[in-house]
Simulated scan of single mutants.
Amino acid sequence: MQAIATNLTGRRGDSVLFSGIGFSLAAGEALVITGPNGAGKSTLLRVLAGLLRAESGQFVLTDGQGAELPVFDHAHYLGHRNAMKRELRVSENLSFWKRLQASESDGGLDIDAAIDAVGLTGVAHLPFGYLSAGQQRRIALARLLVTPRPLWLLDEPTAALDRRSDELFADLVRGHLADGGIAIAATHQPLGLEGVSTLELSRATASLPDLSFQDDGVWA
């Protein structure tokens, strides 16, 4: 499995937010995208997810043997919002996503096991809107577990989480990478992940001819 971005340029309205973005990630690798508000972190993630069209360049996901895989069918995108209905029970929300994103090779966790994995045993029967902001975010993370997809695209994934939940999130990502997955996260906060690559965007990125990243170990 490989995720490869080549000379990506992203625009919002009349403004070019970034250009010349390129990276290559193999199975078991992660990339953390950093930068100030307005630098284009969320826009870049949406381009990778196929939710926005790149101004130029391309992003492809391959099986590692050269065959291209449709990102839509092989990626989880977790944005700023949790993509859950407040009126529905936690179990109903997760069941919806499990059915929607099911595949022939589905080997994801069942609903109760996914809830247990994010440390919220016993909340399956509660309406999603009854949960605290931090609990809601953890259930949104549980959505990543009910259907296995090799690429995780995460926008501020630890928003509203406390320190203990931050550690739980880091463990989930480590497990995903150990299983051969790939993770790309945009964040302002340390994620507690070791040996990940970082890509820093800035408001000046649009004027750069190219942008590469270095493996800096633990990002902080």
Rank of each mutant, 00 (worst) to 15 (best):
E29A: 04
A30G: 15
V32D: 03
V32G: 08
V32L: 13
I33V: 15
I33N: 05
G35S: 11
P36R: 13
P36H: 14
P36N: 15
P36Y: 15
N37K: 11
N37P: 10
N37T: 06
N37A: 14
G38H: 06
A39M: 14
A39G: 13
K41Y: 11
K41Q: 12
L45Y: 01
R46A: 08
R46V: 09
R46Y: 08
L48M: 14
A49R: 00
G50K: 02
G50C: 05
R53G: 09
R53H: 12
R53K: 14
A54V: 04
G57D: 10
G57P: 15
Q58F: 11
L61C: 06
E68L: 14
E68R: 15
E68S: 14
F72H: 13
D73Y: 07
Y77N: 05
Y77L: 13
H80E: 11
H80S: 11
R81N: 13
R81K: 14
N82S: 14
M84V: 09
R86Y: 09
E87T: 13
E87Y: 04
V90C: 12
S91Y: 08
E92K: 05
N93A: 04
N93D: 09
N93R: 03
L94V: 01
L94M: 05
S95A: 15
W97A: 00
S103I: 05
G107A: 12
L109D: 00
L109K: 03
L109F: 03
D112C: 09
A114K: 01
I115D: 00
V118R: 00
T121H: 08
G122Q: 05
A124K: 06
P127A: 14
F128C: 07
G129R: 05
L131F: 13
S132P: 06
S132E: 12
S132N: 09
A133R: 11
A133F: 11
A133M: 11
Q135A: 02
Q136P: 08
A142W: 08
V146T: 07
T147Y: 09
P148Y: 01
P148D: 14
R149C: 00
P150A: 09
L151G: 00
W152R: 04
L153E: 02
L153H: 00
L153Q: 04
E156C: 08
P157L: 04
P157H: 04
T158A: 12
T158G: 06
A159G: 02
A159Y: 03
A159R: 08
A160F: 10
L161D: 05
R164V: 13
